[in-house]
Amino acid sequence: MPKNIDTDLAISIHNLDHSFGQGQLRKQVLFDINLEISKGEIVIMTGPSGSGKTTVLTLVGGLRSAQSGSLKILGQELCGATKEQLVQARRHNGYIFQAHNLHRSLTAIQNVQMGLEVHGFYSRSEMIRRSAEILEEVGLGEHLNYYPKNLSGGQKQRVAIARALVSEPDIVLADEPTAALDKKSGRDVVNIMQKLAKERGCTILMVTHDNRILDVADRIVHMEDGRLANNILNGSAAA
């Protein structure tokens, strides 16, 4: 495959449309989305609820299959991809959800290990070492064997971040990661995300309503009624 300018892009979306439902009930939710995100960039997507932010996120993450237009993730076209290809594509991404979605029967370190095990090529000792290291980095070195129910909301979200980042994914997708947290824990969580992502050269696409964390972004995009409104270069981050 010849090299092209796409190789510097982590995410490249062109003329992407998306509809839900069939026949009479068919409703278009995304209209002509164009977005390019370079590797290592942190992009925050804002917009009112129902504007289609989360749909964009699920399409980028390979959780839904794209219908029309072009959606390239790390150079791979996901529009019209098979189920198997989607499952493979998901493994390049780290996900952070609004709810932490940790498995309640697993301890913090076991939850993080699940993020490595999916790749199938780490040895057991390697998984334990890496998981312990990253939990140390998010400040939970003392809580390796705690079950989620014994951790605070902020701690759980930090475990979730560790799980998303432990396999050093190329792209991190986050959906309102601070929505369930108080101001201080929310801030901590975002700072950790930013720090880890910068260290590892991850690209971050984050959906949020939370004005308090917009400053971590390199760029902010706004969505309204299924259309991408404008790209704002973040002044404070650029400065």
Partner: peptide, 9 residues
């Protein structure tokens, strides 16, 4: 939790 695992790949 299972849906999360599916999202993880």
């Amino acid at each position: 939790e299972y849906a999360t695992f599916k999202a993880m790949g």
